[in-house]
Amino acid sequence: MTTTATSLIVTTSPLQRRRNRGRGYKAFRAIMLVLVALTFLAPVVWMVLSSFKTNVDIYNSEAAFIFTPTLKNYDTVFGQADYVQYIWNSFFVAAVATLLSLLLAVPAAYSMSRFVMKKSAVLVLLARVIPGVSLLVPWYFVFSNLRIVGTYTPLVLSHMFVSLPLILYIMMSFFDSLPEELEEQAQVDGLTPIGAFLRITLPLSVPGIATASILSFIFSWNNFMFALVLSGASTKTLPVAIFDFVGYASIDWGGLMAAAVVVTIPIMVIALFTQKYIVSGLTAGATKG
């Protein structure tokens, strides 16, 4: 009995220990995941809850989770302020800046990758290194003399200044990872170099283009500094418009939070949906390869 029991203990205990260790790891992982999620989501939850509260409830810790919800703040955002226009402005500037940057940066990245133009690449990278704020005064001076401050054009151009190098560098590394043999094979089959780029390389690069586009779009959507100086009353973007709720001797916290929700939710939704797209694109590429 004793011997059997001892041998049982001896044979099962490492397994048991492994199981225990496995359980301990799972519990630790779950706790850490919850902690990280709470840390990142807490401000968003607070923002969303506050957008349904009155100013008195926002400061009242007892009404943190239990309160009488109000839609007044959203009524202020969409009723009194011209937020539909601001949403359109943000969307338009982000979309056009991203699109134009893609049109210029993708072929440029392809050339720099395939024809090893490292010096040109470093030159473009300089645009990423120079802080945008140091360019604001000269930009404003130029755009002001061209009489285009307050229109979409300087906003799009200034956003492209950041988006273009970003897309270029993402796409350069993507093109580097694609085998050149595929294009050579296409050319053997009768395609021109441009044809091989358009019909072979570009379709395989869709996941990279999607990633670069999302990052560029998110940058444009969130940009405050360029829009503050270069936009006008009718071209104001959401990050600038949000400050309308901060007054000199009064802050409409509820309206501010509702406006923040309006700014945040679209970009979160876009990011979530396009993330799916990227994953599927990557999988498709892998299968083809």
């Binding site: 604001l136 005064v137 000269p138 404003y140 001076f141 002001s144 503050l228 100086v229 006008g232 009353a233 600038v240 400050f243 309308d244 901060v246 007054g247 000199y248």
Partner: peptide, 21 residues
Amino acid sequence: EVTQLGEDQLSDQYNVKLNAG
């Protein structure tokens, strides 16, 4: 044509625009 901004944003804008003449 009215442009309306928060006090700090207003200062930032003046600093850039007035500096550029």
